Simulated assay, not measured.
Amino acid sequence: MGIPEERIERLLPLAREAIVAGEHDRARTYVRRAKRIAERNRARLPREFERKTCSDCDVYLRPGVTARVRTRTSRVVVRCLECGATHRYPFS
């Protein structure tokens, strides 16, 4: 694992802590910084990172606070409460 991947891995817990503290703008800054690092270094964002952040408004998705999570037949539906974007992920 290289330096960019390590930095991206460190930013996810920081974004989570910021959401817990109620600082949505700071969490958004951490998510945007991680995406920028991935872009510059042609690194892929981890699946956990992509699923826990909104791709439209860059907020950390925490169920009940910034996201609504519902399960449907063979998929999970996550709706961002900040911008209203919906993301669907398969599961078995």
Rank of each mutant, 00 (worst) to 15 (best):
A21V: 04
A21I: 03
G22F: 03
G22N: 02
G22D: 00
G22T: 01
E23V: 02
D25W: 12
D25Y: 10
D25V: 04
R26E: 11
A27M: 00
A27P: 01
T29Q: 15
Y30G: 07
Y30V: 03
V31Q: 10
R32S: 14
R32I: 02
R32Y: 05
A34R: 10
A34Q: 06
K35R: 15
K35T: 07
R36A: 14
I37W: 06
I37G: 12
A38W: 03
A38L: 06
E39H: 11
R40P: 05
R42L: 10
R42W: 12
A43G: 05
A43R: 11
L45Q: 04
L45H: 05
L45W: 06
P46T: 00
P46H: 02
R47D: 14
R47Q: 14
E48A: 14
E48C: 06
E48D: 14
E48H: 11
F49Q: 06
F49L: 08
E50L: 15
R51S: 02
R51F: 04
K52T: 08
K52C: 08
K52A: 05
T53I: 07
T53Q: 07
T53F: 09
C54D: 00
C54T: 01
S55K: 13
D56G: 04
C57I: 00
D58M: 10
Y60R: 12
Y60H: 11
L61R: 01
R62F: 12
P63G: 01
P63D: 01
V65N: 04
V65H: 09
V65Q: 09
V65Y: 08
T66N: 02
T66Q: 06
A67F: 01
A67L: 03
R68S: 04
R68L: 08
V69P: 06
V69T: 06
V69I: 09
V69W: 13
R70E: 12
T71V: 12
T71E: 15
R72S: 09
T73A: 09
S74Y: 13
R75L: 08
R75H: 13
V76L: 10
V76A: 11
V77E: 15
V78L: 09
V78Y: 14
V78G: 11
V78T: 15
R79C: 03
R79H: 08
C80P: 07
C80S: 02
L81V: 00
L81S: 01
C83G: 04
G84D: 00
A85Y: 06
A85F: 06
T86E: 15
T86Y: 08
T86A: 06
T86K: 11
T86F: 08
H87W: 07
H87E: 08
H87P: 06
P90L: 10
P90H: 14
F91M: 04
F91R: 07
